[in-house]
Design a protein around this nucleic acid. Structure first.
Lengths: 375, 375
DNA sequence: AGAACAGTGGTAAACGTTTGCCGTTCCCCC
DNA sequence: GGGGGAACGGCAAACGTTTACCACTGTTCT
């Protein structure tokens, strides 16, 4: 209970003038920031006039306006958003809930979100869950308290029953609070939910990538897939298999691997495949981080990329072009994803029934890590 | 007064069947979220009891508590932060004001800030200025309105008079509002200002990097410095010259270049130096992005790294280890920078006069882009 | 037995805005 | 010269909390 002295002054209703030297001045004067009343007093007008001058939505005489502005200036007055939010309307912030901001791709989503939100006069709140569902719960609750206009949940997940139940709960809770749940890069939990989904074409991207490898003459492609069950992982795997089928290439069980989206996992899986003597002339990594690991393992084995092994990644992280060789990969429009998410969530106030489900395209970016092979 | 037509329709008996084209009969009933009063009414107690039950700072009978909790549950009640902030105390958010979130290093600062803020129960607001001073002004003002507990300005600047004046203004304005200005990676505008500064050792890092090159036998080191006037750029340049002097190496004007911290700038400067026939056996790039450009230019000229040209960077971006060759560079503790900034800004409430100026160390990370040369 | 008191719970006054509802003025026009 | 407005400004009622005070119980001491 920090008893900050000056709240207990029940008798001084009008006591703004009582400039008692209450001597609590330890170090900083801890001056109460000035309120609209202080401004009104200084300008010699009523609070209503100050409010109206500042809002500019009501005629105020030139003279009153100048006096108010002068008072605002000299008192360094700033409005109190909390009070403003309590009465008039204040545009709620956009909340970005993310596993970890550090990931190169997630940072781009954040940039897109921030930009679009700022363009619409919204603030952006950023929170990390570190993959903890309990924290996610807490954050959604918190955002409801904050009157966030939209809550964006970003990043791939395992869409099991528990996940669906949680998302449905979030969707309804947020909808009831006048907010909107937006799932970015995650599947919708159920149809007809008050949810906006912004996803990208994992399957198509993987299809393009593997097709590129196949038409370049590769037949045996080591797939470094994501975790089984993970939405993006499964989609990319499906794209890989689609491509194999479409080009009449055999699906070889041992080459179709599963693991996390980490550099380490890519390294280990590639090294082990090499050690085990598995035959393959190309690697399709389900993420650029994984590709990084693969590149390291291949190189460590004394093999040249793309001379002896071709590599394709997924994500198009900013430095993909600076690797050696520059990495051919699938570009995911991360920034656009963030922007679209905000646009959709905030825009639906205007358009009655806008798109609630959008899938952005992905695109293969061909650089130099794939070599054409001839038989 | 959002009079959206159909809310005023007490007797819509027939209206339902008509399949109106207006299509907005959905679940968007726009229900006002429930307040503490609704909870009190439902639980059959007073608002005070509800508030006390939820706050848990006052004895409430077991029975009242259960009833309140049940009501909260069934109404999906969440507290309104604005109202709470207006009366009781609410911990203000931490604001991170940054040029652009996308930069690999800035994302790490953001992660550190978010983590430390979350640990202390604060929300993090992040905003991008895109290097626009006017926007920075606006954001500081906005953060004052938001009652941010701390405002972190991140990133190198040109510390001219205008900059100092602006920072002094911010510092005082924020201090008056009970907030705190924190400069991260930027110099203090003046002594004795209510500002917290968290910086890192640019000069020392550059000194280490160049010393490493010199003791490895290099005598002619091409320096790809930052823009003249930019605080971090000047410091790193000073470190470069310190090292030259300390090791008795000659300072060669043509090798001491200036430019932006971009890949393109690094590329162009290195290429031009090579074309001009400048002699150098090593490059010290003032940032890893610049190093990337240098690497590309060197390679393009058919030179081997580190065989013929050694390269050292600055920043230690996450993928530095994945370049070919893995880049020797100066590690900047970005995440720690963010954490420290928040810790200092928020912690000063406890300790009366904590450190207001901290400089974090930097450290050379030796990988494989430098080769020892013998004469 | 009466007082003092701990344990609860309710009342109502803040907190700083916005804005509906009324007064004033003052001007214009018939 | 009086009626009708427009232009402006003030009062006070929200907005949803927290919390200082007070009231009312039973207990537990004297």
């Amino acid at each position: 209970m920090t008893d900050n002295g000056n709240s207990e002054r029940p008798t001084t209703r009008t006591g703004r003038s009582g400039r008692r030297k209450r001597g609590e001045g330890q170090h900083t004067a801890k001056e109460r920031p000035s309120t609209i009343r202080d401004v009104a007093a200084k300008a010699g007008v009523s609070v209503a006039t100050v409010s109206r001058t500042l809002a500019g939505n009501y005629p105020v005489s030139e003279e009153a306006r100048t006096r108010v502005m002068a008072a605002v200036e000299s008192l360094h007055y700033v409005i109190n958003v909390h009070a403003k939010a309590l009465s008039g309307r204040v545009a709620g912030p956009v909340a970005l809930v993310i596993k970890d901001i550090t990931g190169p791709s997630l940072a781009h989503v954040a940039a897109g979100v921030e930009q679009e939100a700022a363009d619409r006069g919204r603030l952006s709140l950023v929170c990390a869950t570190h993959d903890d569902p309990a924290r996610e719960d807490a954050l959604v609750q918190l955002m409801r308290e904050q009157h966030a206009a939209a809550v964006l949940l970003v990043g791939s997940v395992v869409p099991d029953e528990a996940y669906k139940r949680r998302m449905i709960g979030y969707a309804q809770a947020l909808d009831a609070a006048g907010s909107r749940l937006v799932l970015v890069g995650r599947p919708a939990p159920a149809p007809d939910m008050p949810v906006t989904v912004v996803d990208y074409d994992n399957r198509g991207g993987a299809f393009q990538a593997v097709s590129h490898l196949l038409v370049s003459g590769h037949r045996r492609v080591l797939f470094l897939g994501g975790e089984a069950g993970l939405s993006s992982g499964d989609e990319r795997r499906a794209g890989y298999r689609d491509a194999l089928r479409a080009h009449g290439a055999e699906h070889i069980e041992e080459l179709d691997t599963t693991g996390t989206y980490t550099r380490a996992s890519g390294y280990v899986r590639t090294r082990d495949a090499l050690r085990a003597g598995l035959e393959f002339s190309a690697v399709f990594a389900a993420s650029d981080m994984v590709a990084l690991g693969a590149l390291a393992a291949v190189r460590e084995a004394g093999l040249d990329v793309p001379g002896e092994v071709s590599v394709v990644g997924f994500d198009d992280v900013p430095f993909a072009t600076d690797l050696t060789p520059p990495l051919t990969t699938v570009r995911v429009p991360y920034e656009e994803l963030g922007r679209t998410a905000v646009r959709l969530a905030l825009g639906r106030a205007d358009s009655p029934v806008g798109d609630d489900h959008v899938v952005l395209g992905t695109q293969l970016v061909i650089r130099q890590s794939v070599r054409r092979v001839n038989w």
